[in-house]
């Protein structure tokens, strides 16, 4: 991370923390913001956040490691979360998972080399009547078939480059 980027993020962190009167109830909203903007929460960001809330950095790390939507590892611009829970499993999630891996040439838990896509399993997405379901960032896709996988991925690839604004949950 560039020094200027860190400064920028730090000022955003402080601004947000101030809105919460530096009260700890603002910690998770701040972490969610940092995750959205820089696609992970770096050790430096954790330090800055800890300072803003006047808590130990380990407290921050403890929270980050607890929640599946927060991460210390840098994620792709688009995080694909495929539901692995029972009804999506019965509806054919394995076949969808295989095509996702084939299409992106990575395995679950990995990020593509160009930093575009991260592939993850997730627990129940609440779309059990329309499985298999998956999230791409905040967008929900239902009744996904192995056949549709390529089109879904392409539709996100097209948003790459000049079309994607930083912080657009991308």
């Amino acid at each position: 991370m560039l020094a200027s980027e860190r400064e920028q993020l730090k000022s955003e962190i402080n601004e947000m923390a101030k809105k919460f009167n530096h009260h700890r109830s603002g910690l998770i909203p701040v972490l969610q913001h940092v995750q959205n903007v820089s696609r992970h929460i770096s050790p430096e960001a954790m330090q800055d956040i800890a300072l803003a809330f006047d808590i130990h950095p380990v407290e921050v790390q403890g929270v980050v490691s607890f929640y599946s939507f927060l991460s210390t590892e840098k994620k792709g611009k688009f995080i694909i979360r495929l539901c692995r829970t029972i009804t999506c499993d019965m509806a054919g999630k394995d076949a969808v998972a295989r095509q996702l891996e084939n299409e992106l040439d990575i395995e679950f838990g990995e990020t593509t080399e160009d930093g575009m896509f991260t592939l993850e399993f997730t627990n129940c997405l609440g779309m059990c009547d329309q499985g298999p379901a998956m999230l791409v960032n905040d967008d929900i896709h239902t009744k996904v078939t192995p056949d549709k996988v390529v089109d879904i991925i392409e539709s996100y690839r097209k948003r790459f480059g000049a079309n994607v604004i930083q912080g657009e949950h991308a």
Binding site: S25, L31, Q32, V63, F66, Y67, S68
Partner: peptide
């Protein structure tokens, strides 16, 4: 509205409150 961050256990009411307070759920 307060957004969760992906943890099933936060559906348990005291874990949910911990999470609202900025703690591990």
């Amino acid at each position: 509205i307060h957004m969760g961050s992906g943890a099933y256990i936060c559906g348990e009411e005291t874990a949910l409150i911990e999470s609202l307070e900025g703690q591990r759920g």
